[in-house]
Nucleic acid binder design. Structure first.
Lengths: 147, 147
DNA sequence: AATGATAATGATAATTATTATCAATAAGGA
DNA sequence: TCCTTATTGATAATAATTATCATTATCATT
């Protein structure tokens, strides 16, 4: 029996909650399910709206509380977009860059390319800053929205 | 007589308002002054707070209205940071990348390096996306905060 | 499987940020 | 200087997030 990536993510998240002494409750499972299933970075409000499709759904306060917990555990992160707001996206192994479709919001995660390490060295030399992290995001149109 | 960069920015912004039929009012001048003088990307609320140091200051609504106008004119942009909120920063010629100090918020603008064009080509080939823009931001510690 | 300590929830009040409204004001061309 | 009207300031309305607290449900222990 083959497990989908989503199921692997969800079970590892549940493990993480247990290991850190957090209970695995229905509201938390629902929020995690929505995040892990999404192909776009969702805002807290959007997550709450999606949860309303269930016959039973978490209160808005629990959505925010769950997001805070997941972020503290390093399981999710905020992705910023030109519009102004940020959406929620799972943290995955390694350093990532993001590719976002302006039309439908669909996201792709790109394995961090080390091509820019040279660039970073230059910046450190020229500015005197010590650089310890960076964001690289690409915006454009996905295959499906190009037609 | 040598004009500072700030003065050049402010006079070009005023020209832009005039050319586009906007009046140059005291509240607008104050907001522009604060943005052009800042070494960090300020939120609308932070701009309003700074304006209160004057004996006369714009209402909060005028701050928001001025920011919307300046953004529509392409004179300012929103800079996103890990904290969650975004700050206001002048748009300058060409494509830029940003270097932000985590401690004091001080920003440096880096002339867009074309090193990543090859990277973008690869991404387009591998994903089928058409990429038309990107954000590259570096986070770290500035010279002053390193001590 | 039942119990119990307590973490977590849901409902809602409180807070904060942003936008809309409108009478009064001031910019800038005539 | 006058006049037209774009803009302002005060504040109401809206939206998003956080805090409060009595009730509920998880899960280690029995």
């Amino acid at each position: 029996m083959k497990h989908s990536s989503k199921e692997l993510v969800l079970s590892s998240w549940q493990d993480s909650l247990h290991r850190n002494g957090f209970r695995v409750t229905r509201p938390r499972q629902q929020v995690m399910e929505i995040i892990a299933s999404s192909t776009t970075a969702l805002t807290p409000q959007a997550i709450y709206q999606k949860s309303l499709e269930w016959d039973q759904s978490p209160g808005i306060a629990s959505v925010y509380r769950t997001l805070e917990m997941l972020e503290d555990l390093g399981l999710i992160q905020q992705i910023h977009q030109p519009g102004g707001c940020h959406g929620i996206w799972p943290v995955v192994e390694g350093h990532n860059h993001f590719l976002i479709c302006r039309d439908c919001g669909q996201m792709k995660v790109i394995e961090g390319d080390e091509d820019i390490t040279g660039y970073i060295d230059n910046i450190e030399k020229q500015t005197g800053y010590r650089v310890d992290d960076h964001w690289l995001q690409f915006f454009g149109t996905c295959r499906g929205c190009l037609d």
